[in-house]
Amino acid sequence: MNPTDLKYSKEHEWARVDGNTVVVGITQFAADQLGDVVYVDLPAAGTDIAQFGKFGEIESVKTVSDLFSPVGGKIIEVNDAVKDSPEKVNEDTYGNGWLLKIEITDSAQLDTLMDAAGYESLTAE
């Protein structure tokens, strides 16, 4: 169920690599665990973020979780549509439910992430 063209982190974020730009979101597994997402707190575009650094919070009705970036770099765009309609995270997790676009500083970071198979074995535990 997890797209094979993405990379995944232990903290349940996904990364889609497109040249120097990496699109970041949370995984279906994380979205299902949270339930109905009601609020996403995202940083402003232009902010620098370290790999695995905390960049925001995501809330369902009765839980709140920190968001950690799978890659480090400069945040070039945040998904304002998700701020207004957080249900997109549940409805289109790997598409319109994306959270950040990051200009990656060092693409070697990607090697520290899992592929879909690796992530699935993590969540199967």
Binding site: V38, Y39, E59, S60, V61, K62, T63, V64
Partner: peptide
Amino acid sequence: LQTREQHIR
């Protein structure tokens, strides 16, 4: 907006 509150956060 209960996530602001002590029983969750």
